[in-house]
Design a protein around this nucleic acid. Structure first.
Lengths: 138, 138
DNA sequence: GACGATACTTGATCCGATGAAGTAGTTGTG
DNA sequence: CACAACTACTTCATCGGATCAAGTATCGTC
């Protein structure tokens, strides 16, 4: 069983490595860094405040300031004053930003490609395993 | 089935996100960056030339030069002239480096922890799925 | 209205990624 | 053997991302 975990650990490493590399490549294809693509993805769902972005992206607020500034200068997002709190700012995706986010989703073929290699049963099993490993089985 | 893939895609994203964050945390715990820990891990198995490192880490040779220089200044690796090719240099781990690499492996508890949540059958299924997705079922 | 807390920005510094240019050693060809 | 083309690595410059300390503006509360 130790060996089972050891070998699985290596497979996980390899898979994550490939996943990350593919994400990076996809982002560069559409002219973004991985961090920028990631932030754009977060903003694409709905307007998000700077602080929310910092906690969701697990990074410092000043880091978010930088990335948003770069995306804003590319016209992909804009800042607007916080709805209820004058201190906070919401980051809103622009039409151009939405287009790029969509292009990014299309460019990032890795998950669909790889999941497509699995049988329906294997996908079920993978989904269950991920649920458990993400602590979502309660 | 499209929904199955979509939801699985989100789970994969979340899992990779958690994995990367955990790796980064573990590296910082032992005083390294993720890139440095990654290179140290590669060198821990056996001496590796700069060029080999560049291709294994999917990055530029000049990038490897930088990272090796930093690890060397910490006394974790050293460069030695290439065995058969006077142009190449092999990067060798030092005893201190080996200790730190081992501490890193211990600190990076994420895979073992999460795999430990799975039943033996679920681990088997996960291993098979990863094999297929990594193209290793031929 | 003054105080402490919160949300964000600014500036400085480090690290990693990338590209162009340079150096030294190797290989292939005549 | 001589020379050119190539390879392995380094250096330099620049950019983007991460982090920390300090600063500004607003909020909530007493």
């Amino acid at each position: 069983m130790v060996d089972q975990v050891g070998s699985l650990g290596q497979q996980m490493w390899d898979f994550v490595y490939a996943y990350d590399a593919a994400y990076d490549r996809a982002a560069r294809e559409v002219g973004l860094s991985a961090a920028q693509a990631c932030l754009l993805k977060a903003v694409a769902e709905r307007p998000v405040t700077m602080g929310e972005l910092a906690s969701r992206l697990l990074c410092d607020a000043s880091n978010v300031t930088q990335i948003v500034t770069r995306l804003e200068s590319k016209g992909l997002v804009r800042r607007q004053p916080g709805a209820r709190d004058g201190r906070s700012k919401e980051v809103v995706i622009t039409p151009d930003g939405a287009v790029l986010d969509e292009r990014m989703r299309v460019a990032f073929t890795f998950p669909v490609e790889r999941l497509g290699l699995l049988s329906s049963d294997a996908r079920d099993a993978l989904g269950s395993a991920l649920d458990v490993m993400l602590g979502r089985d309660g």
